[in-house]
Design a binder for these strands. Structure first.
Lengths: 97, 97
DNA sequence: AGCATAGGCAAGTGAATACTTGCATGACGA
DNA sequence: TCGTCATGCAAGTATTCACTTGCCTATGCT
């Protein structure tokens, strides 16, 4: 459960993908490929990113919806809000930005 | 920087160690070994845990202070509060628990 | 001084994982 | 219907990483 979230966040490429989805939600696989290549200079294959997206989806950080031959990816921040508070003590938990 | 934090949190054993330090701060290596073994049933060698602590220290999630032949480990939650807000949109950032 | 305790360093092993290459499927347009 | 575009599946490789084993350093006690 939270295990998958931490594992998903462990890879820098996957964190870039999340960055990209924060900026523009609902992108397709090819869009993400293109923007990672141009903006971040990552020359990864389509499959590499597809597998990363699968990991993110397994962690429920990304929700997908099919539309014809396109598959759009939406960011889901809910799991992120849960995981970190685990180690925040009561007094530190109040002023979370 | 934040890279090290995510990498540190990727391993379940390291997350257990953080759990242990939340419960009681300032433990030595042997204390952590003992409590992980008894409470969580983890039969890991001393070096394994020592290496995990080194990773946590590199991520600044654990601060250490030497005192004689003892080395005490203190939890530092500051890096945790930074990393997740990266993907929280403005509207979601308000009601963080 | 001598010995036990607390921790550190380094090399080696096995498993997990990120990435690639090649082929298959399924939807849309001419 | 045929070809193309977007994606999925599977096997193979190579690197990363967690863990162990063995030896070394240093502090404190008797």
């Amino acid at each position: 459960m939270a295990d998958d979230v931490f594992k998903a966040l462990a890879d820098p490429t996957r964190r870039r993908i999340l960055d990209e989805l924060v900026e523009r939600d609902g992108q397709s696989l090819f869009e993400i490929c293109a923007r990672l290549a141009t903006k971040h200079g990552l020359g990864l294959s389509r499959q590499a990113i597809s597998q990363h997206l699968a990991v993110l989806e397994a962690a429920d950080l990304v929700r997908t919806r099919r539309q014809g031959r396109y598959k759009f990816h939406d960011l889901n921040t809910e799991p992120l809000e849960r995981i970190v508070t685990r180690w925040l003590r009561p007094d530190a938990r109040e002023n979370t930005p």
